[in-house]
């Protein structure tokens, strides 16, 4: 296990290096002088020259890249032009808000998606199964930004029950915090809920068809125990991987949800930085999310190995 963990951590290094290269070169693809683009058309030549110097744009490209790598390692992302504060502070302010949103969406998805999938598998080919299957297919096809707008229209504009923008504070009571969280969490949870239901249904159906489940039934075990103790245990393993991937996706997918509900997280930070043409913020926020994404995937791999030690994750064969 220790060797596996060590090898997986080692594998992170080239991936993170590639991530840094991709982001560095994408942001260098900006047409013209990035400093001029960021400062806008009103900027004077002196301002552009000074800002180019500050960003290190006058250095040769390879030097810029290694400076940039060195700063990344030191967690020094530089200063934001539009927010006038260190980017690391901006990220640290916003990141917990995105995590809150992603975790609450994940909780909703597990609470609804997993039982729905089990129910659909248990009642295969009944009305309930068709109902859950249809809803989960609609769920995975849902443009969440549209769902967000519709939720805001119905629950905020029409009924006036829940706020549609901003993030509540626990200082103003638990309800203030929760009421702001409900709509964005539901919007963000829709796709993972549907995916969990689909995955659990298909893996339960596969597990139920195995001989040991038939044996358990033939031994006279109650259906409740057969399903919940034997079948579910095995059916949950693929869910773990998907949950990890979904959590990473939720961090990225929150861009749209946060924009609709003005939730002050990383996604809104990126969108606002794009509007303000503050590409240094965009570059560093994206790098940060990518690193988190890679680390979460590592944690999922490790957990997967812990849950199912027989699985050989080092094998690349058929790894589509």
């Amino acid at each position: 296990m220790k060797r596996f963990l060590f090898r997986r951590i080692l594998q992170l290094i080239p991936t993170l290096f590639i991530v840094a290269i991709i982001v560095f070169f994408i942001t260098r693809m900006l047409p013209g002088n990035p400093a001029a683009v960021m400062l806008g058309p009103q900027a004077s030549a002196e301002d552009i020259a000074a800002y180019s110097e500050q960003l290190g744009l006058n250095e040769p490209l390879h030097r810029q890249f290694f400076d940039y790598l060195g700063n990344l390692v030191k967690f020094d992302f530089g200063n934001s032009l539009s927010y006038n504060q260190p980017i690391a502070d901006l990220i640290m302010e916003r990141f917990p808000n995105t995590v809150i949103l992603a975790i609450s969406a994940l909780i909703i998805a597990v609470i609804i998606g997993v039982p729905a999938g089990i129910l659909a598998a248990k009642k295969q080919n009944t009305f309930l199964d068709y109902f859950i299957t249809t809803f989960s297919l609609v769920g995975v096809s849902m443009p969440i930004f549209w769902l967000g707008v519709m939720l805001a229209l119905y629950f905020s504009v029409n009924l006036g029950w829940l706020p549609s923008t901003g993030m509540g504070s626990l200082d103003n009571g638990l309800w203030d915090f929760l009421s702001h969280l409900i709509l964005p969490s539901i919007a963000l949870a829709t796709i993972p809920t549907a995916q969990f239901a689909r995955i659990i249904r298909s893996s339960m159906l596969e597990t139920i068809s195995h001989d040991y489940i038939k044996t358990a039934r033939s031994k006279g075990l109650r259906e409740f125990i057969v399903i919940n103790k034997h079948a579910l245990k095995n059916a949950l393993t693929p869910l773990l991987t998907v949950m990890g991937l979904q959590f990473s996706n939720l961090l990225g997918g929150a861009v749209l949800t946060e924009t609709i509900f003005s939730w002050p997280g990383m996604g809104l930070l990126i969108v606002n930085a794009i509007e303000k043409r503050d590409f240094v913020v965009v570059q560093n926020t994206v790098i940060f999310i990518a690193v988190i994404y890679v680390v979460i995937n590592l944690i999922v791999d490790v957990l997967y190995k812990v849950v199912n030690p027989k699985i050989n994750l080092d094998s690349d064969k058929g790894g589509a």
Binding site: T15, I18, I22, G253, I274, V282, Y293
Partner: peptide, 25 residues
């Protein structure tokens, strides 16, 4: 090739598209 692909997969899908559109216009 696979390390490059892993690097590309480290970005949530929509985020990579957003960053590219920001740069490409």
């Amino acid at each position: 090739i696979m390390r490059i692909i892993d690097g590309m997969m480290a970005f949530p899908f929509i985020l990579l598209a957003i960053v590219l559109m920001t740069v490409l216009g």
